[in-house]
Amino acid sequence: MIGRIRGTLIEKQPPEVLIDVAGVGYEIQMPMTSFYQLPAVGEEVTVYTHFVVREDAQLLFGFADKMERGLFRELIKANGVGPKLGLTILSGMSASQFLACVQHEDVSSLVAMPGIGKKTAERLVVELKDRLAKFGKTQDVNLPSLPLDGDGGSALVPVNDVREDAASALVALGYKPAQASKMVSGVYADGMDSETIIRDALKAAL
């Protein structure tokens, strides 16, 4: 199993990154909460990974820390939750916020995310409440102000491209195209880059 990747960040296209390790480029899908913490393109980065092997694909999922990876691994053990839905959940809320939802049986916040109906949310709470106890108690129920990288804003990026990139990322995370476009339009303001749009759109959806 590939448990950690350290190399040069050469591409960032939410929710996927490309990291060069000794000449080999690893495509890694990351939840947006981890994506926001990435350095600028060209800098060295370390991500903790989970390797998924399917009949038709081999996929790498990356995380900023071991806690988020551990939570992802518990999520995909739950009935009806695959890697894509796990990625969506951890893009819509921080690891500590998800823990708080489960601990306090906050089904309504879970239902706000795509792919999660009321029955699925209730099942997640029942299945995970005891298993997630090892992560500790938390009162964090607000999305953190996560840092963006420092490679300049989006002043040179056409507005339409910024919006389209953000909408495409939301679709990749499970939102329907029309819903993604509406979410982007609802938070967009002049000067925003795609990562900020995605972050604000996901926060507003909760």
Rank of each mutant, 00 (worst) to 15 (best):
A167G: 02
T138K: 01
D200L: 10
I197M: 06
D140W: 01
L148R: 15
V162Y: 01
P158T: 12
E127P: 04
P147H: 06
D151V: 04
D190W: 10
G186M: 04
Y188I: 02
V159G: 06
Y175R: 02
V126Q: 11
L170V: 12
V184S: 04
G174L: 03
Q179D: 14
A172Q: 14
K182D: 11
R131M: 07
V125I: 03
D193Q: 10
S185E: 12
V126I: 12
S145W: 10
G153T: 13
D161A: 07
G150F: 08
D200N: 01
R199W: 14
L156I: 08
D161Y: 11
M183F: 05
L173K: 00
V126Y: 13
M183R: 00
L173N: 02
D190K: 15
V141I: 15
P177M: 03
I198C: 04
P177V: 03
G136R: 06
V162E: 10
K134G: 08
L170T: 09
A166G: 02
S181E: 15
N142C: 11
G136T: 06
A169C: 01
A189V: 09
D149F: 13
A133I: 10
L148E: 05
L143D: 11
D140H: 07
Q179C: 04
V171G: 00
P147M: 05
M192C: 00
E164L: 13
D149A: 12
Y188S: 05
P147Y: 04
E127R: 05
D149R: 14
V171C: 03
D151Q: 13
L148F: 15
A189Q: 15
V141G: 11
V184R: 00
S168H: 07
L148Y: 13
L173T: 02
T196P: 02
E164W: 02
D130E: 15
T196C: 09
V171E: 09
E127F: 03
E127N: 08
A169T: 07
N160S: 14
I197R: 00
V162R: 01
F135A: 09
K137N: 14
D161W: 07
A133Q: 10
A172L: 10
M183P: 05
G152K: 13
R163Y: 04
Y175F: 05
G191N: 05
R131L: 09
A178V: 05
E127G: 08
R163W: 05
K129A: 08
T138C: 01
A133Y: 11
S185W: 05
T138V: 12
L132G: 04
L156T: 07
G150C: 11
D151N: 13
M192P: 03
M183Q: 03
A172S: 15
D130R: 01
D190P: 09
N142M: 14
R199S: 09
M192I: 11
N142E: 15
V159I: 08
I197P: 00
G136C: 09
E127I: 06
D200R: 05
Q139W: 10
K182V: 06
A133T: 07
L173Y: 06
G186C: 01
L143S: 12
P158M: 07
D190M: 13
V171P: 01
A167I: 01
L156P: 01
R163V: 03
L124F: 02
S194A: 12
E164V: 13
V162M: 06
A167M: 04
L148V: 04
A178P: 06
